[in-house]
Amino acid sequence: MKMADKSESSTNSDTPTNQDELILAQQRKIQQEISDTIPLVGPLDQISSLESEYSTDTIYLAKIKDLSSKYKSIRRTRPDGNCFFRAFGYAYIEKLLDDKEQFSLFYDLVEKSKNSLVALGFPQFTVEDFYDTFMEVLKRINDIDDASDAKKELHNLFNEQGYSDYMVVYLRLLTSGQLQKEQIFYSFFIDGERTVADFCHQEVEPMYKESDHIHIMGACSVLLTGVRVVYMDRGGNTSVTEHNIPQDRLTPDVYLLYRPGHYDILYL
């Protein structure tokens, strides 16, 4: 455990102001503005709806055109730093609802996961809280026979902050557990001196921390699934770049659009 990072200036005065709280207060204000305007998980939109965000940007407009030739629709998620886990969890469960057999395999996998986390050293008392909520959501949607009704319930639960955030936390914990379990492999993906456990405590488990390639690898690996990330940025050519995780899995369950700093869900 270490002290929070502080700016140098506070060492020069005998009565430093409580800068940590000032920073946190400002962050809270920005987050509040975002959460007031963008739903946690939005409705299905056409790919062309992206155009309005880039009306004067020819590179992006060309790429949106390319994107719309490959994908039919997009579902936006709130840019709160949890977007990967929220988009991934939503899109994967939504996909599983089309195949009862796959869903029940997933259900069994998650059901067993709490004991694995506790065995890895996660505190049982708090892990249980998130696990119970995750299982409750899976049960609730599993009890609905009609797939499209089940998807509606999934959508509602993912837009209820309490449920939605607990789903994200549990996915973060599962991912952290996986990275730590395979720490020799994942240590090659971490820059600097940090151990995999440090990285997990600082970048994976805390809410609102943005996800990178390594988070996606861990999440896919622990839940035995695959994601295709479609990159769209201002670089290079006129087409979007697609990348499968894990690399050798050519038929992903989840398609995500990545624009610098943010993930949304894509549909074929």
Binding site: M3, D5, P123, T126, E205, P206
Partner: peptide, 16 residues
């Protein structure tokens, strides 16, 4: 006020 990482940028929902 307390300057402690786990109460700021290293908070984890697994803490109680």
């Amino acid at each position: 006020g307390i300057c402690l990482d786990i109460l700021q940028n290293r908070w984890s929902p697994t803490y109680d």
